[in-house]
């Protein structure tokens, strides 16, 4: 067996409830609908200090129908906030990639708002592992 330890530090952690509260605020009272969002994340993180994340929202991205904002939360970090992306019709696509820190195994929750007032959500579990024994 082989071990390595990483993360954001110890202490208080966000919970699915705190993440849900953030989403409610972002959605302005609307109940998010599942779908339209693709999240690309490794199922198991190679390095909790830098986990590649790509989000993509299926939208026309025209002047009258485009994704305005995308909120990314991590429900097991000390604070749930990761980033908020803001798009315009000039973005061409509602796609963005970055690299994030994950203290532990947790869900990444992505919520998107459109110019027409629709709200979508999706989530993906990322495992942060300590052991490694290769086959």
């Amino acid at each position: 067996a082989a071990f390595s330890v990483f993360g954001l530090g110890t202490g208080a952690q966000a919970t699915p409830e705190t993440a849900a509260a953030e989403i409610a605020k972002f959605a302005g009272g609307k109940a998010p609908v599942a779908g339209k969002i693709t999240i690309e994340l490794p199922e198991i993180a190679e390095n909790g200090n830098t986990v590649p994340l790509a989000i993509s929202v299926d939208a026309p991205m025209t002047e009258d129908d485009y994704v305005t904002d995308v909120l990314v939360l991590a429900d097991g970090n000390p604070n749930p906030g990761v980033a908020t992306f803001h798009f315009t019709p000039l973005s061409g696509k509602a796609d963005a990639s970055t690299r994030i820190r994950l203290a532990t195994t947790q869900n990444i929750v992505v919520t998107a708002k459109t110019s027409k007032g629709a709200v979508y959500t999706a989530s993906k579990l990322v495992k942060v592992t300590i052991g490694g024994c290769g086959g």
Binding site: N77, A83, A96, T98
Partner: peptide, 13 residues
């Protein structure tokens, strides 16, 4: 003209 922007938290690597 604005194309894209991001507000970032400490969870960004």
């Amino acid at each position: 003209k604005p194309v894209f922007s991001a507000d970032m938290d400490p969870a960004i690597a």
